[in-house]
């Protein structure tokens, strides 16, 4: 792919990603936010593909746009918010403060990237050693290279991630578990009184 084509496609995809993420946070109805999130995930996957990280790109599509989105939609479906259920948003002062803070952070980050040696190669003592895409071997971005990186370079973190997931599962079960004591001993069914109490509890 010629550099010109690469830069142009990056610009287009990045613009789509930025636009989609703005739409995600500004929509009032969560279902629209979720749909724009799919657009964002798709754009992210394309950026990975542009960087020749093929495996990561497809994983992004499969895991995020596929599995995680379904989870989001399930949650939204289960909660099923109506127009009246959504809380009132803050007044003008809140919006100005929030917007101001966000723009301040944005300006800081913009400044940092703009002034960095990444964009000013003439500055001395630049430690930048990012490899050129062309210099990478043919196996770069493939499943084998990805797996080797994951299980050799990042083995410890990979194992730690499994503990992270375990903690998440244990926590979710604990938080969502109903107390067993409410179940009556007789037929194993919850008596109506306890059920009502439980409903009031939720």
């Amino acid at each position: 792919m010629s550099p010109w084509l690469q830069h142009t496609s990056f610009a287009i995809i990045a613009a789509i990603a930025v636009l989609a993420s703005i739409l995600v946070v500004t929509r009032r109805n969560p279902i629209y936010s979720a749909l724009f999130l799919i657009v964002l995930f798709g754009a992210m996957a394309m950026i990975f593909l542009l960087l020749e990280a093929d495996f990561l790109g497809f994983m992004q599509l499969l895991v995020y746009a596929g599995a995680i989105m379904v989870l989001y939609l399930f949650v939204i479906m289960l909660i099923n918010p109506r127009e009246g259920d959504l809380p009132e948003e803050g007044g003008a002062v809140d919006r100005v403060v929030a917007g101001g803070t966000a723009s301040l952070v944005f300006c800081l980050l913009w400044f940092a990237i703009h002034e960095s040696a990444l964009l000013h190669p003439e500055l001395p003592a630049v430690p930048v050693v990012f490899p050129e895409l062309a210099s990478l071997g043919p196996e770069h971005g493939g499943a084998a290279a990805f797996g080797r990186e994951l299980f050799h370079e990042h083995l410890l973190v990979f194992e730690l991630a499994s503990i992270l997931i375990l903690v998440g599962i244990v926590g979710a079960v604990h938080i969502s578990l109903r107390t067993r004591r409410r179940v009556s001993a007789g037929n194993g069914l919850t008596p109506p009184a306890a059920r009502a109490e439980e409903a009031a509890h939720v």
Partner: peptide, 12 residues
């Protein structure tokens, strides 16, 4: 320790 880009490093 070998040297960070001054601006990016500070913000990071």
């Amino acid at each position: 320790g070998d040297g960070l880009d001054p601006v990016l490093g500070s913000v990071g």
